[in-house]
Design a protein around this nucleic acid. Sequence first.
DNA 1: CCAATAGTGTCTATCAGACACTATGCG
DNA 2: CGCATAGTGTCTGATAGACACTATTGG
Lengths: 228, 228
Amino acid sequence: MTTPDRLIAWVAADIVALTLRGGALHVALVKRKAAAARGQWALPGGFLLQGESAEVAAARELEEEVGLGRAEVRLEQLGTYSAPKRDTEHSRRVISVAYLALAANLPETVAGTDAGEASWVPVDKAVKRRLAFDHPQILRDGVERARAKLEYSTIATSFLDGEFTISELRAVYEAVWGARLDAANFHRKVTGTPGFVEATGEMRRGRGRPAALFTAGSAQSLNPPLTR
Amino acid sequence: MTTPDRLIAWVAADIVALTLRGGALHVALVKRKAAAARGQWALPGGFLLQGESAEVAAARELEEEVGLGRAEVRLEQLGTYSAPKRDTEHSRRVISVAYLALAANLPETVAGTDAGEASWVPVDKAVKRRLAFDHPQILRDGVERARAKLEYSTIATSFLDGEFTISELRAVYEAVWGARLDAANFHRKVTGTPGFVEATGEMRRGRGRPAALFTAGSAQSLNPPLTR
DNA sequence: CCAATAGTGTCTATCAGACACTATGCG
DNA sequence: CGCATAGTGTCTGATAGACACTATTGG
């Protein structure tokens, strides 16, 4: 006794995957190979399969289209986009569960199976580019979420791989926020917050005085927060 | 050329509707009348219809099942629950887009059309009650979101109708957080934050010194935040 | 007057931000 | 040495929290 006007939908998982490259925030975009919106740039993503949750589907698509494995990335649900006209390219309504993925700058993008082409695009260029469906909105929401979360969580360390210096962590904040931070106060704040970073005892040498190396600590939230 | 193993799903909108009654945080629960999980207590909600977005469906269900109109409530997306086994009562997979709804203590619950029975239940009792599907999880997430948002947003005013005193606003914080706040410091903080509340010039008389009345201001976020 | 509630004054410990200064490497 | 980068010291203004105190009503 199914109500006849109940919606039957396909469910997609789309990902705003962010990383830092050369001091600038980049987002992964793919050139669509599927029939719908073919040839347009879009966020990586795809349909949930039988037996998959949205998060599992997001992780699978990220691996297939961008070459990012589950361990290399922090996935967090961003929101669900369900406007009736958000996708007019398919024969059925499609609702999309969007995820935010933060990755360290390890991998080059991979020309995956589903997507014709994948590449990291600077965020300020990507927001001006024409993207398929409602992906411009999802991208803006994802970047804004990342900016907000840097304030009161330790996710900034997700942009860094293994050991890092306080300067590198500060560069993450400066790139995501688009603002300069005072190096001295940032150093004190970060090292003075228990669980944010853990000193390894190692040093990294370069130009200038060697910098102490740290790894991500166990704390998840920042109290008090860092201010933009 | 549809991929055969692509998921086809029903989409539900479920609502964690919170209000304050007698100084305690309450959530709206309904006794299910539909075949699936019939007779169990659950969050209000229901399936998206053709042409509806999740938010529109949430607003409709809230009106039908709880008697809360769109203007009386603040709706905010909470998250989407898509685990394959979250709902084993239906013949198709169901994913649920959950919403948080904050309402002033105006209406009694309405025994609506879909739900057999609806009532406001104290949150601390509701979290211990057996609820259908994964609604215990959704309820916990909703309450935690409300608690967190009081800190850095002005949504506390959504629990109050029209004009209110600073004491009433403080009572909202104390009920949601389950903690006492210093009346003097709270007063200064709230009235000193531009856009949080606007004085009306009116007074409310009761036992003790009359209290100035305020309405909700235009500010959305609190900077700096109130701390729990 | 007393009880009750609203609202202000004031002190202190803490902290963010500014910025001068010291430390330690490289070429 | 001189430059670059890392990291510390120190001052100041703002603020959260504690709590004493004043203000204004009803009974």
